[in-house]
Design a protein around this nucleic acid. Structure first.
Length: 289
DNA sequence: TACCAGGCGCGCG
DNA sequence: CGCGCGCATGGT
């Protein structure tokens, strides 16, 4: 198979920002940048000297052009964030995270990944997903690297509950098994992207293990619905500390942000989530000095 | 040891 | 409807 390498301006496509902002769990450092895994595919991406370079199998070129949302003009989104008058944090977050692109991930993979993410931390989420891929996925080679694909839904759903427990899923084990069963039967999400945000919400919230936050993440990362605003513990901090908010209920906090940012809500949420966590790691490093 | 992590289901009022 | 609680697991 042949490889192709594409290049983009890195101003609004920085691979570190795009991968480490929390929207995807399957990637690792490799040489000058990262290997990115999605479904059964892989790409090598690095950012250097104002450009981002993307290498993939030539037959996957269109797939990754869409995956990295390359056709969208992110300068307009960032500009809107910079001109909105909502205090400091949004502007700083836009400036800090303007290299982020919201990926067009597989909705099934996003759903399973974010069910795993609930009440969990990112390094552990990555570890669990990696383990599931290693044990159930197909072994493939990309450049000089051997990796495992995201498993077929059929393969996931036929595992006994014990498998998911051993993977470290704890009480989420039955949720994941149930979701795989749903996805591989009546609930076909592949033809669901045409549905409205509202309609998709009803479908997703009907699944056991999917609440408002997981639902919003799947809508944003798996369906590119941007009129949503996932609120987790970090965004709750942003709401209280940076917007001086008084609401307690996360669903209402989310609604409040959506009514404020409308169709940019999803993008701005990612910018602020990434920025807030960055500030936190800086603080923790200071404490250790 | 208690608390936290990209929360959610359930039972109660 | 809203609220409080328990929940598996591993790291600080």
């Amino acid at each position: 198979m042949e490889y192709v390498t594409l290049s983009f301006s890195s101003e609004f496509f920085n691979i570190k920002d795009t991968l480490e902002c929390g929207q995807i769990f399957r990637f690792l450092y490799y040489k000058k940048g990262y290997l990115v895994f999605t479904e059964d595919k892989c790409a090598y991406v690095y950012t250097e000297n104002r450009f981002t370079y993307l290498t993939c199998f030539s037959e996957h070129k269109e797939y990754f052009l869409n995956f990295f949302d390359t056709e969208r003009d992110y300068s307009l989104i960032v500009k809107r964030g910079l001109t909105l008058d909502n205090g400091d944090i949004l502007k700083k977050a836009c400036e800090f995270g303007k290299g982020i692109r919201i990926l067009n991930q597989s909705s099934a993979e996003a759903l399973i990944s974010f069910v795993i993410s609930q009440n969990n931390n990112i390094p552990r989420i990555k570890g669990i997903i990696e383990k599931i891929c290693k044990e159930l996925g197909e072994s493939k080679r990309f450049l000089d690297f051997d990796y495992h694909t995201f498993p077929a839904l059929k393969k996931i759903k036929e595992q006994p509950l014990e498998f998911f427990i051993k993977a470290g899923l704890g009480y989420r084990a039955e949720y994941v098994k149930n979701v795989a069963e749903l996805l591989d039967s009546d609930l076909n999400l592949k033809n669901a992207s045409s549905l409205s945000t509202e309609r998709l919400k009803e479908v997703l919230l009907g699944i056991k293990g999917v609440g408002p936050k997981v639902c919003d993440c799947v809508l944003l990362f798996g369906f590119h619905k941007t009129d949503v605003f996932p609120v987790d513990t970090w965004m709750e901090k942003v709401y209280r500390q940076d917007f001086n908010g008084k609401l307690k209920n996360r669903k209402r906090i989310s609604d409040w942000f959506v009514s404020l940012f409308l169709n940019d809500a999803g993008y701005f949420q990612q910018y602020m989530f990434y920025y807030k966590r960055y500030l936190n790691t800086v603080d923790n490093n200071d404490k250790r000095l």
